[in-house]
Design a protein around this nucleic acid. Sequence first.
DNA 1: TTCTGCAATTAGACTAAGTCTAAAAGCAGA
DNA 2: TCTGCTTTTAGACTTAGTCTAATTGCAGAA
Lengths: 132, 132
Amino acid sequence: MNSVEELLTSHGVKPTPQRVVIAEYVMNTCCHPTADQILQSVADRLPVSLSRATVYNTLNTLVQSGVIREVFTEPGPARYDANLDRHHHFVDTKTGKIFDIPWQEVPQLPQELAGKYKVHGCQITFFGQMED
Amino acid sequence: MNSVEELLTSHGVKPTPQRVVIAEYVMNTCCHPTADQILQSVADRLPVSLSRATVYNTLNTLVQSGVIREVFTEPGPARYDANLDRHHHFVDTKTGKIFDIPWQEVPQLPQELAGKYKVHGCQITFFGQMED
DNA sequence: TTCTGCAATTAGACTAAGTCTAAAAGCAGA
DNA sequence: TCTGCTTTTAGACTTAGTCTAATTGCAGAA
Ligand SMILES: [Mn+2]
Ligand SMILES: [Mn+2]
Ligand SMILES: [Zn+2]
Ligand SMILES: [Zn+2]
């Protein structure tokens, strides 16, 4: 069960060593890591030096092929997420930590989310194209 | 009816000439402008040169005091919005243009919004703090 | 009216996040 | 083995925004 290699292949992505360790890292971490965190954490799992360009190239490839998703939480760098289930995110504006919010936990967008978070704001953005 | 001066004052913001023209511009444009667009458009309405730092300082002041809101639509720079009504945004990923989506037009987050937009993705992020 | 002191503004240096480029390395098939 | 495409690399570059230190603007005190 070479699962990550198979996963990449099944998404049309050639499983190079760099891509495998990056995908593995994103899939096994809980914390929505940034590109820089991934670079730091993954560099010594490879026999060669790992370039920043490769990290960004790989993350973009994985996002475009649907292996992971990108989470934008301004201010700050993009975060990466292997949880493809439809879900929201909660950003603690003091610590910067990100928490997953299950889709069904938001019945109508509230001021308090399940008593666990104090919501100060909410950004909802749809991406796509106008009808031609 | 010096309305912009009064609006700023009522929000606790001293209405300097720079702040007034910037606030006026954001309130009278339809297009969710960026800081840079604001700088370009507003500079020649003032007898003095207008600094980029002042544009950012002013926009941050106006956001913090609740006169305008900030819209993050990665990739790209922050956009500013004088429409304080609760609403969503739609970003055309081809042109970068932003459209307001009335709050009630999104009954349950759909693939097609009122037949007008093709939605490829959606980012929902809540900001706030964890309960202590 | 002048003086004083804080608030606001300015130019430009600096930083953070990410992209681009040109060269090198790694493969897969002929 | 040779050939050509893909991937990776180091580092330059770009964009968006913040910071700094000096200057300017003004409101209130004297
Ligand atoms: Mn930003
Ligand atoms: Mn970004
Ligand atoms: Zn998530
Ligand atoms: Zn808007």
